[in-house]
Nucleic acid binder design. Structure first.
Length: 419
RNA sequence: CAUCACCCCUUGCUAA
């Protein structure tokens, strides 16, 4: 059983759910009883692919074979909701977990929900929950702190972020590398390069191993801000410190080239990197596809798509969204419908593309239908989608409906709108 | 280290 659990966990983590399920079936034929760990691994894997149906089915199966969902199971679902932007479901589940008692709610649970609030720009609720943790007798760990700090930085509440950073370091030191990296990255993204660098030296002094991840963050951040000189500086420093230049550094370069509209350069750099032994990430492929489409090079786009598949990636929602975007933008609506129908995984990007698809044709009803589907899936419509819809309604002369939506938006998102 | 959260990366309106 232990061996199976290990194997299943690994397959689930890698997204090879079919393999993992096969193993589960195999266990049954050998009349071994799967335990909680096994079910939980599988459920987690399924939810990472947004497959809620199969995951729920598995919970039932779990019960039937005499296992009771435990705090891991709950947390896994909570995180699934958060990841899928189904914040309301996450909140409901959290409340349920609290009611049950039984110690289902722990620091991890709270950390996930805090991250959920943060992602949805509902920072104040995140802060409230954070405060509540202490009431409930839980000590927020460094991950909770880091989540809040990065989000506060994102919305420019710098003072508050600094307070939390100090509180965190006094309680936990600098925590794990990843935690530090989160904060560093947030600073970099804000363009606060100097605070970032000084934090970095502080980290080094405190014995946090500056690792490849941190260098990669710095590198990509600098590239994005167009500071390529400093970026190459970082690369030098990396090499001097004995860090191998990883594939991800190359990946960032390709992505940066595409982003700055240097598609041809990106292409040649990409073939160079493939000739070397660097491994392109799926993001690189997606980036290249979108770059190709921007240049109207469908031929190249489909070429990249093929390469992507032969490299072992399964093109998913993001890739589809890229094509969908192109179809909508160029008015190839029939293609857009066809693709949309075919897509099993749809996210808020998918829906926003379809909404603009219908709005462009003045098909308000259909756009509203899409919006409804989005809500039925318990996705949280964000500011972007609301403003898309509202603008469409205004343009079509449906002022009252527009106002209704504007009010709904303010209620749901606790934000204001400009007229 | 048998199963959960934090980081990073790709896709969103705007004849602009």
């Amino acid at each position: 059983v232990f061996t199976y659990a290990l194997a299943i966990a690994i397959f689930s983590k890698k997204g090879k759910l079919d393999k993992a399920m096969e193993l589960l079936a195999e266990m049954k034929t050998e009349s071994l009883a799967p335990n909680n760990v096994i079910f939980n691994s599988l459920i987690d894997g399924l939810l990472k692919q947004q497959d809620f149906d199969k995951a729920t089915a598995l919970v039932n199966e779990m019960r039937l074979s005499g296992c009771t969902p435990d705090k891991y199971t709950y947390n896994i679902f909570l995180n699934g909701f958060v990841r899928a932007d189904r914040l309301e479901d996450a909140i409901a589940l959290f409340a349920h977990m609290l009611e049950e008692g039984g110690g289902y709610v722990n620091e991890v649970t709270c950390g996930m929900l805090i991250a959920g609030f943060a992602k949805a720009d509902r920072i104040d609720e995140a802060l409230t929950l954070f405060a509540k943790m202490e009431e409930l007798g839980m000590a927020p760990n460094s991950i909770c702190y880091a989540t809040l700090i990065t989000q506060l930085l994102k919305v420019s509440r710098v003072e508050q972020a600094r307070d939390f950073l100090e509180a965190m370091t006094s309680k936990h030191g600098f925590g794990e590398v990843q935690t530090c990296n989160a904060v560093l990255q947030a600073l970099i993204n804000k363009g606060s390069l100097d605070p970032a660098l000084s934090l970095l030296t502080k980290l080094k002094k405190n014995g946090v191993k500056s690792n490849t991840v941190i260098y990669n963050s710095l590198f990509s951040g600098l590239l994005r801000m167009g500071r390529s000189d400093e970026a190459s500086q970082i690369v030098k420093e990396m090499i001097e410190n004995g860090h191998a230049l990883t594939s991800s550094a190359y990946n960032f370069i390709v992505i940066d080239l595409v982003r700055s509209n240097q598609f041809e350069k990106a292409r040649s750099f990409f073939s160079m990197m493939k000739e070397g032994r660097a491994i392109p990430s799926s993001s690189v492929y997606n980036t290249l596809i979108s770059g190709a489409l921007k240049e109207e090079r469908f031929d190249l786009a489909s070429g990249f798509l093929k390469d992507m598949i032969s490299d072992g990636y399964t093109p998913g929602c993001v890739t589809n969204n890229i094509f969908l975007h192109k179809f909508v933008k160029t008015g190839q609506f029939e293609w857009a419908y066809a693709l949309f129908e075919q897509m099993e995984k749809r996210d808020k990007f998918t829906y926003s593309h379809m909404i603009s698809c219908y709005l462009k044709q003045n098909k308000i009803e259909s756009a509203l239908l899409i919006f409804k589907e989005l809500k039925e899936k318990a996705l949280v419509p964000d500011q972007f989608i609301y403003s898309l819809l509202i603008r469409g309604l205004v343009r079509a002369g449906h002022l009252d409906q527009a106002i209704d939506f504007a009010e709904e938006m303010m209620k749901n998102l606790a934000c204001s709108y400009d007229v």
